[in-house]
């Protein structure tokens, strides 16, 4: 599951990962993420921190505090590492801009 508000970056991640035939669920907002995760649990979550309607670090904490979802790996993405102010329980951090090969390796290491 990819949570990213920028359509180009969503497309880019789509390109990187669909070539290997992963099933992707794209969420452009915090609300759509909450809707989707209620329907079906993903294998891994890649999430941007600055979202138009919420903060990725808060969403991450919700996922990690919920017994039903806490096993799902969460990878937080941001341009500024400083946005990772507090302990979020995230499994990894991906700084932007990223190298697509590195990106793929990190995501796959959690699958």
């Amino acid at each position: 599951m990819i949570v990213e508000d920028n359509p180009d970056i969503r497309d880019l991640i789509g390109f990187i990962l669909t070539e290997d035939a992963y099933q992707l669920k794209m969420c452009p907002t915090a609300i759509s993420f909450q809707d989707e995760i209620a329907k079906k649990l993903p294998d891994v979550i890649v999430m941007d921190i600055m979202l138009p309607d919420g903060d990725g670090t808060d969403l991450c904490r919700v996922v990690k505090n919920n017994p039903a979802t806490q096993h799902i790996p969460v990878l937080l993405m941001s341009a500024h590492k400083s946005e990772l102010k507090t302990e979020t329980g995230a499994n990894s951090f991906i700084p932007k801009p990223f190298n697509i090969i590195d990106f793929k390796q990190i995501v796959e290491s959690y699958l």
């Binding site: 920028n6 180009d8 970056i9 497309d11 880019l12 991640i13 390109f15 990187i16 341009a79 500024h80 932007k96 801009p97 990223f98 190298n99 697509i100 090969i101 990106f103």
Partner: peptide, 13 residues
């Protein structure tokens, strides 16, 4: 950095 991320990514693709 946001446009840089997609610029870099697509160039690599």
């Amino acid at each position: 950095k946001t446009p840089m991320t997609s610029l870099m990514g697509f160039l690599q693709v």
